[in-house]
Design a protein around this nucleic acid. Structure first.
Lengths: 232, 232
DNA sequence: CGGTGAATTGATCGCCTTCAACCCTTGTGG
DNA sequence: CCACAAGGGTTGAAGGCGATCAATTCACCG
């Protein structure tokens, strides 16, 4: 469950995030301090309003980042893939987490203590810049979600999410979306009730725009979905 | 319309944003390069999908940051007050703007060329960190909006916005909100149709929770509004 | 082969959008 | 100083979308 002598410097995962700009000594220090952890599907990595003692670098698996609202419903803000850093925001601004992270797959994660991150943030401007650029992209992404949520219908949002999932997380050998989500999770991304989401998917299926096998979804007609989003 | 010998180092406005951590020489350089501009109420500072050649530091007035969706409706993401920097995100990640900025008041703004910002981002880690922390707060804010939009009713969102406007932009001597928004703008913040927003406000008025004079709004019972948000 | 949790479908209800009409304020030109 | 236009504000009525609750089917697991 712990460490082993795995070496950050040779870890291919780090190429996918801001850690790639770190120097040899910084990586060495992180290698020594990090803790490898496994999370089973459904397990919680952290909750809202927690104080994090470091960030999590995802080596394997996917995680949903979600937020509860006062009325008990929850909204998935983002799906974090292999290579992403979780908890950055909270560590940087020294605030409680505002999201919770839950494993969608079995995951393998490296926990990197806050101290290492803060040292690099304070001393390695390339790193700070890389994190900044990353965060500015997330902000843009969030702005887009806001507009989509308020201005588009459930079916448009569903179509958009499906295409997004295909584009960003790919398909398996048979063409099914790699991300496997429960209908409820799907609904929590779209921002709707489970049944509404299901009804939309079943409509898409009737139209031949998607097909399903078990829980898996395959996009059959992305053009039609795109047209739906833009209103033809 | 241009420059004058106004000095950034002595500008009180810079205390309100990331520029406050800059050194004397950096400020001097910005002072020399900056261009002061006035924008009349309703004028556009920049549009979506523009390439910015610098950032705008707001000395006076307020601006709405909004985004068009494919269907022609637009959503206000944020209201920028005196002291805020506009266009940071776009300059940092070297992308087109994803929002447009429009003056809500008569504004006074300093345009700071991209070059100055980039130099400080590359050399002054305190500055980069300050911007990073600022951006991480904006990201958190955006996450909150997403949840509110999807999980709360129009009246809850309206109540929330009213309290937010009071808390963040204050009231005038008679207790009316300082931010004066058209009903349409208000609706574009709440993420609803103008009429829906108006109806909600008129209900609030009937309940005695707010009162109005002309376009101005005064909050009379913030407790009731808070209770509405949390569902009693 | 039951049992549990998820997926699906039906039916009802209410919120919100939309369209339309009207009012009120403001400003402008004769 | 008045008339009128223009734009924002307000209200009414109709209709649809999506939430909610309930009932049923389906998939998976011991």
């Amino acid at each position: 469950m712990n460490n082993h002598k795995k070496d950050c410097e040779n870890c291919i995962i780090k190429q996918l995030n801001s850690l790639k700009v770190l120097g040899r000594d910084e990586l060495k220090s992180i290698s020594d301090a990090k803790i490898m952890k496994g999370f089973k599907k459904g397990e919680t990595i952290f909750n809202e309003n927690e104080k994090l003692r470091g960030v999590f670098c995802v080596r394997k698996g996917k995680s949903k980042l979600s937020k509860m609202s006062e009325n008990g419903k929850n909204q998935i803000i983002k799906i974090a893939n292999k290579g992403e850093l979780l908890g950055q925001r909270s560590v940087i601004s020294e605030e409680m987490t505002n999201l919770s992270a839950t494993a969608l797959d079995d995951m393998e994660v490296c926990f990197i203590p806050k101290k290492n991150i803060v040292i690099s943030l304070n001393n390695n401007i390339e790193f700070t810049k890389a994190v900044l650029i990353q965060m500015s992209k997330e902000l843009k992404f969030a702005d887009n979600i806001i507009v989509n949520m308020t201005q588009k219908s459930v079916s448009q949002r569903t179509a958009e999410i499906l295409l997004y999932l295909e584009k960003n997380y790919g398909k398996d050998e048979k063409g099914f979306l790699s991300v496997k989500l429960k209908r409820e999770d799907m609904a929590n991304i779209v921002g709707t009730a489970k049944e509404g989401c299901i009804r939309t998917l079943s409509l898409f299926k009737k139209n031949g725009w998607i097909s399903t096998d078990r829980k898996k979804i395959k996009i059959e007609n992305s053009i039609a979905l795109k047209n739906l989003i833009t209103g033809f």
